[in-house]
């Protein structure tokens, strides 16, 4: 089926993909290795192999606490942001929209500005409103930060939606709500899920905005940030590896959903 030039392009791109993936995964593997063996003077001491770090990690209350805070923040922020993204994208594409550019700028700004600015601006305004900093403020900060990504993906998808689909639905007598539920939403599903996954990764790792909004609560990246000065323990490598494994499973679930959602023949 494929002709020769196409096959060559495929092979080249495949080699490139493999190489880049290897490079992308090198830090991951190295962390994973450091979590189970000791490394001295650049040499790996295989005889020190132990899973001890994966156990001792859980008796470290500050790490466990930070991890659970991070999970709460990420889940809430992503849920809120995904919902907002769909609503705002629908609104933006609605014929009666007013001042769409303005709203979009507001959505994109937190993502475009250096995080210090977003963090400080939220800190300054929340302190003026007398809101005390804690998980709530971090959630707000993360929501506005990840909203841009979720919105962008949903909107791109929505814009590519054939008008005819919606029109056909109306012609067949479907209500606006039915059209949304059975036509628009399924069409958007893959973008929403992709957006949520992307948002989750951003939120999980977001440090610089959180620094200013955290008050006396610690998220995982903040803990890592504070530890960076002091030195990472092998426990941290264990933790990071574990987080990666969990996300792997999560992402695999998402991907299998994606595939079903997109099972239109190609």
């Amino acid at each position: 089926m494929l002709n020769r030039s196409e096959r060559i392009a495929d092979i080249l791109a495949g080699v490139l993909t493999t190489l880049v993936l290897l490079v992308l995964y090198a830090p991951v593997f190295i962390s994973a290795i450091f979590s189970v063996v000791q490394v001295n003077d650049g040499r790996i001491m295989w005889e020190t192999f132990s899973l001890q770090n994966y156990v001792s990690m859980w008796s470290n209350p500050s790490v466990v606490d930070a991890l659970s805070n991070t999970a709460i923040v990420a889940a809430s922020a992503v849920a809120i942001a995904s919902l907002l993204a769909v609503l705002l994208a629908l609104y933006a594409e609605w014929p009666g929209v007013i001042f769409r550019r303005g709203i979009e700028i507001a959505i994109y700004l937190p993502f475009l500005l250096p995080p210090i600015v977003t963090g400080l601006s939220l800190l300054v305004s929340s302190s003026q409103l007398g809101i005390s900093r804690g998980l709530m403020t971090i959630i707000v900060g993360h929501t506005v930060f990840v909203l841009a990504v979720a919105y962008r993906l949903v909107l791109t998808r929505l814009q590519s939606m054939p008008r005819a689909l919606v029109e056909a639905s109306y012609d067949l007598g479907a209500s606006r709500l039915q059209t949304f539920r059975f036509i628009t939403l399924p069409y958007l599903a893959s973008a929403i899920v992709t957006g949520a996954v992307l948002a989750l990764t951003l939120s999980f790792d977001e440090t610089l905005i959180s620094v200013f909004l955290a008050g006396d609560r610690m998220t995982l990246p903040l803990r890592l940030w504070a530890m960076m000065r002091v030195g990472f323990t092998p426990e941290i490598n264990a933790l990071v590896t574990l987080v990666l494994l969990v996300s792997l499973v999560l992402a695999a679930l998402v991907a299998s959903r994606l595939r079903i959602g997109n099972s239109n023949p190609e």
Partner: peptide
């Protein structure tokens, strides 16, 4: 400031103190 975190006396101490840091 950072120096103050001088507390890192080798990773053993580090682990000990993190473990000990009270949960909030």
């Amino acid at each position: 400031s950072i120096s103050r975190r001088k507390f890192a006396l080798g990773s053993a101490a580090t682990i000990a103190s993190f473990t000990a840091a009270p949960a909030i």
